[in-house]
Amino acid sequence: MRVDLRLLLILLVVACLALLPVAALLAEEPYWMRFWSRIMILGLAAAGLNLILGFGGLVSFGHAMYVAIGAYTVGALRHHGVEGGLPDILVALGASAGVGLLIGAICLRTSGIFFIMITLAFAQMTYFFFVSLEQYGGDDGMRIASGTQLGPLHLDDTLTLYYSAFLLLCGVIFLTWRLVNARFGMVIRGARSNEQRMAALGIPVFRYRLTAYVISAMICALAGVLLANLTLYISPAYTHWTRSGELLIMVILGGLGTLFGPVIGAIVLLQLEDLLAHITQHWQLFLGPILILVVLFARGGLLGLLAPRQVSQRPAEEIDG
């Protein structure tokens, strides 16, 4: 590993995240923990999306759907009187894997803009599906009576949730690192770069992409479980298309196909929103142009800005930051 600005930034961020609750307790600002839990949860979902978007080159405009599936799992299980934590996680993973397998198999038949649009269409379908679930509050959504409990761990406790999100995020980034550098990841990345050549070499790209799609859906569903614990609320708005757009923005802001990019992107986007919201009620008036400027002028994302060379030119084995 080369010691560069990016690495320093990442170490700094990880250290700050690990120690933030201490600062929050000392400053008696528990809100900080909730705010940063939210950042890490969305960062987790963005990391899931990054697996297929950044490394696989598949622009899914519907990944908020899987976050919503995770959240609704918690809500539905509690609604039907299922307590305890393991069912939350297992059902969320199972449901997202099943839905991801089905929808992924259909979507991956298309490519390019058609893929973007068909993933969006499925997310919209899910949106209207959740709206129609009147026993879960329909359009308005529903409160969740209690969060996920894993033995002594109560995920709806602020501190527990914070560290659960932190550890899960670190775990997923580590998993992504192994995944994208293993043979599986080489296929996914090769397919992004040159799909035709993959087939000519004898690699059936579809099944690997589908696997990556399902893994990424499951990561997003885990983020959804945590999100339900943070808000203790579920709503069809979780799968609104602007949420999927926000996940895309986080991945791009941080740096496409970098391991820590999604987290950096989540931090920057949510902090920016928070900051602008403090200054003016009309913060979106400024967020929009800022996004445009980032896309136009900082193509490798923020991590790309700090990198010595452009991300796309880097030989693949250097993907370590």
Partner: peptide, 18 residues
Amino acid sequence: LAVQAHAGHSFRFWRPAA
């Protein structure tokens, strides 16, 4: 990657290919 294509399936998720 070409060698990998010839070496059977690529559902190997852990060992670094490099």
